[in-house]
Each structure stands twice: as C-alpha cells, then as structure tokens.
C-alpha cells in the first residue's frame, strides 16, 4: 500500500520536474501538454484521496475482524 502511495507521489513530482526541465516540450503545440498535466494531477489527486479512504476502511475492517 505504502509503495503504491509512493508511486503516486513520485508521479506528482515527475509532472512538475518534467515541466520545469523541459519548458519547450510543455509549451509545444500551443501548450497542450499543460492541459494533459493538469488532468493527470487531478486524476492522481483523486486517486490519492481514494487510497486514503481505502486504507481507513481496511484498518476498520481489521478491527472488526479482531473483535470477532
């Protein structure tokens, strides 16, 4: 789980570092890759939130199991 979280976080940073390292690429074709980046960040962010809820539920489930 935490490894997955790490991958998501790394993708966040790679979007930013890619846009910083290669401004020409980000600004080619009328800056369309900025839109791609924004959509990716949005998707990753929502995924991160789902992972958060998922983890809490798993913990909760385990508690119930141990109660029984």
């Amino acid at each position: 789980m935490s490894r997955f979280l790490l991958i998501v976080l790394m993708s966040f940073f790679s979007i930013f570092s890619a846009s910083a390292a290669n401004a020409d690429f980000m600004r080619s074709i009328g800056k369309i890759y900025v839109v791609v980046g924004v959509m990716l960040l949005l998707f990753l962010g929502i995924t991160l939130y789902l992972i958060l809820i998922d983890r809490r539920l798993t913990k909760f489930e385990n508690q119930i199991k141990s109660d029984e």
Binding site: I15, M26, R27, V38, L41, L42, G45
Partner: peptide, 24 residues
Amino acid sequence: TGIIYGLLGLITGALWAKNTWGAY
C-alpha cells in the same frame, strides 16, 4: 473533500501558472 479540492486546485493552478505567468 473541500480541502482536497482546494489542494488540487492549487497544484493544477501552479502548473498552469508556470506555463503562462512564468512561475509556479
């Protein structure tokens, strides 16, 4: 959820700003 939306708005805005205003 509102805070999550706000944070996402901030980072998407930063990426947009980098390529239009010139800085994150």
